[in-house]
């Protein structure tokens, strides 16, 4: 009845109790019932992982196929020959360079502005008393529950009055001043002991200097969370660019890829997958490197909601 709990999840999960050699000395105290329970948990997690990751596997594999291999019957999960050339062709067959340049520019500028104004305002909300502060903050929180889709029309009309539609500025403006950033930073600032800023104040530091020299350095983890989340959100945004950006030279990667498909005269879906894979790679790298900050940012924004 020994189950090898130190083996990879798949091994004990498949056939509970068929005599896998035991290497789980420290697990001796578990009852058979709990072991079966754990095995079930692993089976469930394994199935869920496969379900979660299969679309990505399919995307990457298809990006290396030939044009008519994508729809082959029966399904070819792994291409017969890997066509790495797709990853060269895509650059000449589409405007990927322009799209990536625009998207990168937007993501960097928006992230910078969001971090700067967000942490600045959060300091004001967290540490400085002024009349109407709490009402104002409530207003900030309230708009998080208002979907952008419900006020995109008046926002667009206002932007067109000042002739900012069809410019990258429009995207910067609609993305950079989110209430979410202020909320996230304020929550973090409130965990920093008030005495620190009190001491600094006694030493004659101005409020600005306190923010710059004490709060900012202490809030690096929160800034990392907010920065990563903002960058990814801007990179992935589709609706904003769809509504505001008309001229192809202004397109972002999401908009570009979407139109690339409809313009494919030979319906080369393999090449579409190549473009998608390239668009996902930067996000995947950022996510794997900064996963901890993503999870912490999401989790802390949810806790107090």
């Amino acid at each position: 009845m020994d189950l090898s709990l130190t083996a990879p999840p798949a091994a004990p999960a498949e056939h509970p109790g068929d005599g896998t050699p035991s290497s789980a000395g420290q697990q001796n105290r578990m009852t058979p019932g709990r072991r079966i329970g754990q095995a079930v948990v692993y089976v469930v997690l394994l199935i869920a992982s496969v379900a979660l990751l299969t679309p990505f596997f399919w995307m990457v594999m298809s990006s290396l196929k030939s044009a008519n291999e994508v729809f082959s019957v029966p399904i070819n999960w792994i291409p017969d020959t890997f066509r790495w050339h797709n990853f060269v062709d895509i650059w000449s067959k589409s405007d990927m360079v322009t799209w990536i340049r625009n998207t990168m520019l937007l993501s960097v500028v928006v992230t910078f502005l969001q971090l700067l104004t967000g942490s600045f305002a959060a300091y004001g909300f967290a540490r400085i008393r002024f009349p109407g502060r709490d009402v104002l903050f409530l207003l900030y929180i309230g708009t998080i529950a208002v979907p952008w889709q419900s006020y995109m029309i008046p926002q667009f009309v206002m932007m067109s009055k000042v002739h900012l539609t069809d410019t990258l500025w429009a995207i910067v403006l609609i993305q950079a001043f989110g209430a979410f950033g202020v909320f996230l930073m304020k929550q973090f600032y409130e965990t920093i002991p008030e005495e620190l800023s009190e001491a600094a104040r006694l030493d004659g530091l101005s409020e600005y200097a306190i923010w710059r020299r004490i709060m900012l350095p202490l809030s690096v983890p929160a800034l990392a969370s907010l920065g990563l989340i903002t960058f990814v959100t801007t990179w992935n945004d589709y609706l904003g660019p769809l509504i505001y950006l008309r001229t192809p030279s202004n397109w972002t990667i999401q908009l570009g890829l979407q139109s690339f498909i409809s313009s494919l005269y030979d319906a080369n879906y393999a090449l579409m997958f190549t473009g998608l894979t390239i668009s996902v790679i930067p996000i995947a790298v950022i996510f794997l490197l900064g996963q901890r900050y993503f999870v912490e940012g999401i989790a802390s924004s949810g806790l107090k909601g």
């Binding site: 990879p8 754990q38 997690l45 992982s49 979660l52 999401q254 996963q291 999870v295």
Partner: peptide, 25 residues
């Protein structure tokens, strides 16, 4: 449990992938 960290990564990954990529795939 062992492998929990891996699963958390796998589960969160679709959420940070763009809607366009997801929808097309």
């Amino acid at each position: 449990l062992r492998g929990v960290a891996f699963f958390r990564t796998a589960a969160f990954f679709p959420y940070i992938t763009s809607i366009v990529a997801i929808a097309m795939v």
